[in-house]
Amino acid sequence: MRLLPLALLLLSAALGAEERPLRFSVTESWAMPMMQIDNGKASAGILYDLQMRLAQKVGRRAELMVMPRLRVQQMLVRGEIDVRCYVNPAWLHESHYQYIWSVPFMVQRDVLVSRVHDQPPPPAQAQGELVGTVLGFIYPRLEPLFASGHLRRDDARTQELALEKLEAHRYRYAVSNDMALQWYNRRQPPARQLQAISELSADLVACIVRDAPDVPTMPLLRALVQMSNDGEFEAILAKYR
């Protein structure tokens, strides 16, 4: 009979260990509709809904860790993040061999943006122009122009701040993903709305999941496939369009 309390204690400890939250990285430069961050905590948005639903599907709690992009990279290298969503292989500086890629869940379209009534010249003709960008973001189509000094980056901490500076006439161009631009224009009168003048890139984005014994790696990857097949990704995106 003495073995029963010990068995219950061991079972309780095992269940407690299984309940460790899944650590999702959240880059502090994200803006709505991708992520709402209030006082350093993620609270809403496409990626918030996606990550909370993903954790729910595997029976775990989600810990959304908000941090600068550089720290995200460092923690990935050390294996201190379980899941990172909204990423493309071309955006990573490291191989992250300890992570497995999921199915893609959306396409990010980066566009060059200007004010509605402006007619700035094409970037190739805009010698020395400032371009509103986000700190740490990579823009492959524009990188050669930045490297040569033909264009100059003006880095903002978040995507929303980059658009606000464009509206405030700090520069004539900015780069934004199309969904962030649409969200920003929602609260602007027609005369102050911003316009996309050209598409710079269209990249499939997915999640990477740490392949380790303390992470339900395959259940997470299967859950993402199931969400894709069941239309859950599209339902989340539609909520914020």
Rank of each mutant, 00 (worst) to 15 (best):
P213E: 13
K41D: 05
I236W: 12
R69T: 10
R152K: 15
V111I: 07
A17N: 10
Q36Y: 01
Y173L: 03
E18D: 12
Q193S: 05
E129Y: 13
H169E: 12
P122F: 04
Y86R: 08
E143A: 05
P122M: 08
T158Q: 12
R152W: 06
L64W: 03
L76M: 11
L6Y: 06
L237R: 11
R141F: 09
V116P: 01
I46Q: 01
W91T: 04
H117L: 07
V225K: 13
L151T: 12
L92Y: 02
L3V: 08
M52Y: 09
A14P: 00
F146H: 05
V103K: 09
A168Y: 03
N185R: 08
S102I: 08
Q73S: 05
V175A: 05
W101I: 00
S12W: 08
L50G: 02
D82T: 01
I236T: 02
R153S: 01
Q51F: 02
L200K: 06
S95E: 13
E18I: 04
L3N: 14
Q125W: 14
A180R: 08
A13G: 11
P68Q: 06
S12V: 10
L6M: 07
A202P: 00
E160V: 01
G45S: 02
V113F: 07
G40L: 09
A212E: 11
M65T: 01
F146Q: 05
R222Y: 06
K57I: 09
E143P: 00
L112F: 02
E19T: 07
L11V: 02
Y171D: 01
V131E: 14
V209M: 09
D178A: 10
L64G: 00
Q195S: 10
L22D: 01
R109Q: 14
L8K: 06
Q159G: 15
